[in-house]
Design a protein around this nucleic acid. Sequence first.
DNA 1: TTACGCCTCCTTTTT
DNA 2: GGAGGCGTAA
Length: 768
Amino acid sequence: MSIYESLNPVQQEAVYHTEGPLLILAGAGSGKTRVLTHRIAYLIDECQVNPWNILAITFTNKAAGEMRERVDQIVDFGAEDIWVSTFHSTCVRILRRYIDRLGYDRSFTIYDGDDQKTVIKEVCKKLNIDTKIYKERTLLSAISSAKDEMIGPKEYLLRSEGDYARQRIAQVYEEYQKRLRSNNALDFDDLLFKTVELFKTDAEVLNYYQDRFKYIMVDEYQDTNTVQFQFVSLLAAKYRNLCVVGDDDQSIYKFRGANIHNILDFEKTFPDAKVIKLEQNYRSTKTILDAANGVIHHNQGRKDKTLWTDNEQGVPIALNQYQTEYEEAMGIVNDIAAKTERNEAEYKDFAVLYRTNAQSRVLEEKFVTRNIPYRVVGGVNFYQRKEIKDILAYLKIINNGQDDVAVRRVVNVPKRGIGATTVTKAAEYADQWGISLYEAFKQVDGIPGLGRAAAKINGFVNLIQVFRTKAEYMSLAELYDEVLEDTGYLKELQAEQTDEATTRIENLDELRNKIVAYEEETEQPSLNELLEQIALVADVDNMDDSDNKVILMTLHSAKGLEFPYVYLCGMEDGLFPSYMTIVNDDPMEIEEERRLCYVGITRAMKKLTLSYAMCRMMHGQTQYNKISRFVKEIPPQLIGGSLPRERFSRKVEDDLPWNTGSTSNGISGFGGGRAGTYGSGSRMGTGVGNRGIRQSHKFDVSAFAKKGGDMKKTAPDYEVGDTVKHIKFGTGVVQAIKDGGKDYEVTVDFPKYGPKKMFAGFAKLKKV
DNA sequence: TTACGCCTCCTTTTT
DNA sequence: GGAGGCGTAA
């Protein structure tokens, strides 16, 4: 039997259609990755296409990695020759080879958002821009949108006639590009922009890549922006074997320049395009899918399709109302604890999704108190942490002395007496002579008025020069150790003796691990390539399916993922849909939020739980919000209640010794904050709803009775005086161990959080 | 030059 | 409620 027979007929049709433009409209959970990977296998195995001629583009490294893995599994040989990568890494690979044709140096560095901000600040200072009127963020996003639309600084100015504000932005844009250029750096948008520019200006290069990539596949096509569309169109122009996969209902990146018309008008752009719709969902229960359809049908201007499934009806959707965000978080955490304790599911089966990153804080707090392992995706990215960026800045300087941003960042970190005044003088000198800041440092004797600071600058230059020499013969990990030592960075952290410093040191260790791993898996490791890989990773990419943790992330990050149990929290008008989109009264904006909701709902495989809080702290103020309009768009018969279990969970939680009880300072006091039930009792009593509730209630009771009864009590492997590690409190010293009947009660003194009492069985303390 | 404290602004979402 | 910017004091 061929591997293609496991596909349904429509999927097969998509696989077998190999020549010419093809649009696959793939609903959520309809097996599009399967189709793509099988299509690649088919091209190679049945159509004798050289793997070398295939390019598959995704948005995240994680998606690329997954696809690569699955392709490896089904393609007989040559899989490693297929390019499976993100837009950004594809462009970097091309630019590393040919960007000198645009007058750039091929060893350019890539600037992330923080670096961009640093540059824009300098630009504003130089041009006397009042950042109260023109916010740095606004300027950057204007520049970014311009680049997405492939509008350069000159053209931007031309288009700004009669508009002073825009002219001012044009100046900023021009100066910003100038600085990137002299720093030999590209920002994310440049990677695409410059590649397209290269294709347009250099027929030889374009021709080479057109012949190279005879078969092109693009995933998540609905999220492509204009410059990405151009990139793909140019590449595919010669052979026209372009297969795009997407779902207009999951287009959620308009704010980032995604142009939904790329997918909606695909048939206009390619009149001979074949269109195939994948509408059978293999992921979710009927209930979940009906809810998703109920919501998304409120959108106008979408391609007509209805997702259906052969899966079972499943349990009803839970909807919980809470007084505050704290109680909401506690409700979610308790629910997860209950399910895992009775072995219904593992931690990694759960995802908690929210609209804004800020919402994660309260959730985290509750996960910590309940001692449930979790991982927050997004928010403060590992590579955005101060200590990581500092050390990376050193590595960047060693790699590329033209990177002024990196030099400014660490020239006085740790403190070596080179203050702002000194740096400014050197920068002026550099400007005057058209050299980089680091070059100016080297010529420090020529800079007037520096006084004693000159010697200090020499010290810094020597430090870097020594690193460069060492980089010649040392491994990257060795070089990394040298940087930590010789800069005194590590010593300074060690001297601090605070919890925060310990975390920072741990993070630096983690970075070292990543460097070692990179060196092990790469044939010819180089500092340049290492930095490039780091620059291109997103946080989702680091999500490891193997560690058993609850995942917390924004709805945006959740796209493309699936989880058995999904919690959508903060379902309130003003939060989701966001306040901005409500006041804006542009229906298109609400529609984008609705698609986001659709994405969230369709992540769930077995059960979806929605929740909202009557009031929550937003922008430092208590806000009273109404239930989200999206909840009301879900057919009510799909929603059940969960009152009994919530009440029970609260009981369990009150038994926990380390819980100080947030109900005591809650608005409503004890009892008032428990989850209520949306709608009337009669709704609870109807059909499917009833089944779900009774079941979960019953399970709760018996599971708990069992747990309390015959749970094995094992003596801890640590004793009084030992240092132990807790999942979030960090390390602490055991002060007392008491036999508390059904479990051992341990008191641990944590430096930052003070003494905590906890049950050994729950706390999972590890001796260190 | 640095450390501290007060001020403002922020809140969509990210490769 | 928190991060970053700015001014003042030592």
